[in-house]
């Protein structure tokens, strides 16, 4: 336990000067910037549609954009880049010759990934609010400056999105450790996203068992979709937690028993 915090901190040092760190920053910035650009170019139409308080529509546009593909691919890409640091630099063998248990190494990786995704949402909030006020300053008729954003909704959406992300984090940590080639986990994500679209188009209620759809299900409810609310979370978010535990346990077992780095 004495080495727990120092060894965890090394994971944050490792992403210095790497694209993984820039991706976290860009990930939080890109969607608010893109939605702000759309609002800016179609402001007359949006001002009419949004009514007096534009923050609700701005939030809906941003969250729907975030949840359909954006966050999924952000997490997939970040996981690939983060784990590729060890493969690219041939450092697995160095890690395994240090006096630190494999279980601890795996736990550090999982915790770091969760922290990175939390950072992504934490960066998204100020960027999103700043973009709203910037739009208000540039286009006063949108009335952004006259109202305040719904911070409670923003925080709630972030929490639900984060819980929905857990399943993909678990799956892609295992894939990124198992496959040195980054293309494989990305290809899996592309294929699963196509399946997700097909499930939506087919109005399949089984979509609640499909982790790649959880982000969207946390933000919007399709017309065909019904689920129970169990305690504080909807059904699919419990499944997301379940998938996370399942894949992390499987990954832990595989990593500590079979994984020997890049031989």
């Amino acid at each position: 336990m004495a080495k727990f915090w120092p060894s965890l901190l090394t994971e944050f040092i490792k992403i210095r000067n790497s694209f993984a760190r820039w991706l976290i920053l860009l990930g939080g910035f890109m969607m608010p910037a893109f939605v702000a650009f759309v609002v800016f170019t179609k402001w007359k139409h949006i001002a009419g549609e949004a009514g007096d308080n534009p923050w609700g529509l701005f939030a809906e546009m941003s969250w729907k954009g975030m949840s359909f593909f954006y966050s999924v691919f952000f997490i997939v890409l970040l996981t690939c880049l983060y784990f590729n640091i060890e493969y690219k630099n041939n450092t697995w063998k160095h890690i395994f010759t240090l006096p630190i248990g494999k279980g601890q190494v795996y736990l550090n990786k999982v915790l770091s990934m969760i922290v990175f995704v939390v950072c992504y949402y934490m960066l998204f909030i100020p960027f999103w609010v700043a973009m709203g006020y910037l739009l208000g300053a540039i286009k006063p008729p949108l009335h952004f400056a006259c109202h305040a954003p719904d911070f409670a909704l923003l925080f709630r959406n972030c929490c639900h999105s984060l819980i929905s992300s857990l399943s993909i984090i678990g799956i892609h940590i295992w894939l990124s450790i198992r496959f040195k080639n980054m293309i494989i986990p990305i290809a899996v994500a592309v294929f699963c996203s196509i399946v997700m679209v097909a499930l939506f188009q087919g109005a399949a209620t089984e979509i609640k068992y499909f982790p790649y759809a959880y982000h969207y299900l946390s933000i919007a409810t399709p017309y065909f979709f019904h689920e129970y609310i169990w305690g504080p979370l909807p059904e699919h978010e419990w499944y997301s937690v379940g998938f996370f535990i399942l894949f992390c346990s499987w990954g832990y077992w595989d990593f500590t028993r079979n994984f020997a780095g890049d031989r």
């Binding site: 004495a2 080495k3 120092p6 060894s7 901190l9 090394t10 040092i13 490792k14 210095r16 000067n17 790497s18 640091i85 690219k88 630099n89 041939n90 450092t91 697995w92 063998k93 160095h94 010759t97 240090l98 006096p99 630190i100």
Partner: peptide, 25 residues
């Protein structure tokens, strides 16, 4: 030191040493 040195090329030499230093306590 096994074969080629295992180094984080995106970091400085001091950072690389820091990582080992922290893990070894």
């Amino acid at each position: 030191l096994v074969e080629q040195p295992s180094l984080y090329e995106n970091l400085t030499g001091r950072d690389n040493l820091s990582i080992t230093c922290m893990i070894r306590g």
